[in-house]
């Protein structure tokens, strides 16, 4: 190695063959790449990312059934999009089965999408402030949409008019 500095003599040692490091001349200390420091956030000490990873796979499998079933009913079978109307929605939500189907789809899809977007923001937004604001916006929009959708399913009134 030819990258000697004043404080770090090369490990090759001198012409005598013995190391130059000693109590009076210690080797430079290097921080290991993933060492925890005072600046490492406490929150990384949980298994949050593991549960997030697992949730994406489990919710994904359930969503394949829920969403493809939904698309089949709404867009493929029985004339495609032509048939969709207030009356069609009222007919489907008259059954608790479809209410629960739609409720589960809403919650799982929104949380699955939110976690995916969180990953993407963490990957591409490089500044701390940008990341924080984008995630705040994401969490606010997600909470609003999930609550609105839940309220609509539970308070639906076929005789509104």
């Amino acid at each position: 190695m030819s990258t000697e500095t004043a404080n770090a003599p090369s490990e090759g040692g001198g012409s005598t063959g013995t190391t130059r490091y000693s109590v009076d001349n210690p080797a430079p200390l290097m921080t290991p790449p993933r060492a925890r420091t005072a600046r490492t956030p406490k929150s990384t000490r949980t298994n949050f990312e593991l549960y997030g990873w697992l949730f994406m796979r489990l919710s994904g499998i359930v969503l394949v059934v829920l969403v493809i079933g939904h698309l089949l009913i709404q867009l493929v079978l029985d004339g495609g999009v032509s048939k969709i109307s207030f009356a069609f929605v009222a007919g489907r939500w008259a059954s608790p089965f479809w209410q629960i189907w739609d409720l589960m789809m809403l919650w799982l899809a929104m949380l699955h999408g939110m976690n995916g977007m969180r990953t993407i923001i963490n990957d591409y937004a490089e500044r701390d402030g940008t990341r924080m604001w984008l995630k705040m916006l994401l969490y606010t929009a997600t909470a609003f949409t999930v609550l609105l959708g839940t309220l609509v399913i539970f308070t639906f009134d076929p005789n509104i008019r």
Binding site: V89, L106, L148, G149, V152, I160
Partner: peptide, 8 residues
């Protein structure tokens, strides 16, 4: 979700 909310 917003367009479906119009049923209310």
């Amino acid at each position: 979700v917003l367009d479906t909310a119009l049923v209310r």
